[in-house]
Computed example of a mutant assay.
Amino acid sequence: MAAGEPGDLGGYYFRFLPQKTFQSLSTPETTSRLRQWSMLGRIKVQAFGFDQTFQAYRKDDFVMAFFKDPNVIPNLKLLSDSSGQWITLGTEVKKIEAINVPCTQLSMSFFNRLYDEDIVRDNGHIVKCLDSFCDPFLISDELRKVLLVEDSEKYEVFSQPDREEFLFCLFKHLCLGGALCQFEDVLSPYLETTKLIYKDLVSVRKNPQTKKIQITSSVFKVTAYDSVGMCYPSTKSHEQTFSYFIVDPIMRHVHVLYHCYGVGEMP
């Protein structure tokens, strides 16, 4: 049987946790920034609980069981391509793809190299460059260049494993924003918002032996397909349309971070 196809799904049962709120997305400052980045009203986090021990090697079964669960189907939200309204899936998932996203970073010092490489000045201002396009994104500064332009001289400041880290993915998504994104001139709003959301989504604990803080969450980038084709996170593929499942195996919670590229709420 192909991975991610329904079969014996191992008896995972889910429950929606509407009472679990994510402050990082609702503070006035974050709301204001998401509006500026054209993401407000198009980004959402939802929490679900589950009842079995989570085993990362069975992630495909876990995700398929999630989409089949009667407590998920009426509660999992996505944006309609046609109306732009929040809707539920309303179609039967036939196949899923769940890509492992490494999640090991515990410090925002991960981004210090942006200062070291003159992508950001010491005063926090992002260095500008001549406008160019990396479809569909306008590149007008060195930050977007290092995020997007593979043949740029500073692209290798972040290695391929660095770029796969959930912390980097989150940062990049916030920097690129939605369809009418107004870019920041300074780095700090991106770093602060990335840190807030990351801390809200990812679980840590102190290792009893080493006494060091370690991340306990597993992260997957998830796509689902019905009989017609891709149905989640959208029927249209876009670098800025995504759904990440952040699984806390100890609390048995899964946080679903969702964004659909488009025009966010206006002031």
Rank of each mutant, 00 (worst) to 15 (best):
K128M: 07
Q23H: 08
F166Y: 15
R58C: 07
V157G: 05
L130D: 11
G178P: 08
D61T: 12
E117L: 06
R163K: 15
C169A: 09
N71K: 12
E165F: 04
T21M: 09
V45E: 11
D131R: 14
Q23L: 13
P136K: 12
E92V: 12
T193G: 00
T241W: 02
G90Y: 12
C231V: 15
M266T: 14
D116T: 06
Q55C: 09
Y13G: 04
P208S: 11
T104I: 08
S107C: 11
E164A: 08
F110P: 12
L167Y: 01
C169P: 05
L25H: 01
V127Y: 05
N71Y: 06
P70F: 07
D200I: 03
L76Q: 00
G178W: 00
S38M: 07
G10I: 08
N71W: 04
C181T: 06
K212F: 10
H173F: 13
V204H: 01
D122L: 11
F242I: 02
Q214I: 13
S82K: 14
G177A: 11
P70T: 08
L174R: 01
K206G: 02
D200F: 02
D122F: 06
T235N: 07
S80N: 15
S82Q: 15
S38I: 00
S217Q: 08
H238W: 10
V247N: 02
Q105Y: 03
T53H: 03
V93C: 04
M266N: 12
K145Y: 05
N207H: 15
L167R: 05
Q36N: 12
G177H: 03
K44L: 15
D81C: 10
D61G: 11
D8F: 13
G262S: 07
C175F: 06
D51G: 13
F137M: 09
R42P: 13
L40N: 08
G49Y: 03
C103K: 02
V256D: 01
L114N: 05
E184D: 15
L17C: 13
E184T: 08
Y232P: 04
F166Q: 01
A224P: 02
F245T: 05
S152D: 14
R163T: 04
F14T: 11
T21Y: 05
S217C: 06
A47G: 06
M230D: 02
T241C: 01
M230Y: 02
I197N: 00
S237T: 14
L78F: 10
F62T: 08
S38K: 00
V254T: 15
I73H: 04
Q52G: 05
Y198R: 08
K94F: 04
L147Q: 01
S107H: 12
